[in-house]
Amino acid sequence: MSTPAAPVARLLYKPEEAAEALAVGRSTVYELMAAGALKYIKLGRCRRIRRDDLERYVASLTPQSN
């Protein structure tokens, strides 16, 4: 009896997947990429966002006080 394989940690995200991970809309991710706030790489015609860049972006956000 074989054990199920452990899930592989994702290293690259499509903009749609990054939007889901950040809990924002897809167009917001594209706006962040265009503004340079969220780094991405190009693989051919595809854009991919590294997990480290997503984490760096979130860490750079400033909490708002009420």
Rank of each mutant, 00 (worst) to 15 (best):
Y57M: 04
D53Q: 10
L12H: 11
V58Y: 06
Y13S: 04
I41V: 10
A5S: 14
R47M: 08
S60V: 00
L12W: 13
Y13K: 04
R48N: 03
A6E: 12
S65V: 15
A18N: 05
V29P: 05
A5D: 09
T62L: 14
G36C: 08
A37W: 06
L43Q: 03
D52G: 14
T28M: 05
R45W: 00
A59W: 12
A19Q: 04
P7W: 06
A37I: 01
K39W: 03
L54Q: 08
V24C: 06
A23I: 07
L61R: 12
Q64M: 13
L38A: 08
G25T: 07
T62D: 13
A5I: 09
Y40D: 01
L43F: 03
R47Y: 06
T28K: 10
V8C: 14
R45E: 04
V29A: 00
G44A: 04
S27L: 12
P15A: 01
Y30T: 00
Y57R: 02
R48K: 09
S2P: 13
K39P: 00
P7I: 06
K42D: 01
M1I: 10
A18R: 08
R50I: 03
R47F: 02
A35M: 04
E31A: 12
A37C: 09
I49Q: 00
A21V: 14
D53P: 05
T62M: 13
L11T: 13
Y30L: 05
E31N: 13
R48M: 03
L54E: 06
A59E: 14
L22A: 05
I49F: 01
I49R: 00
T62A: 14
V58E: 11
A34C: 01
K14M: 06
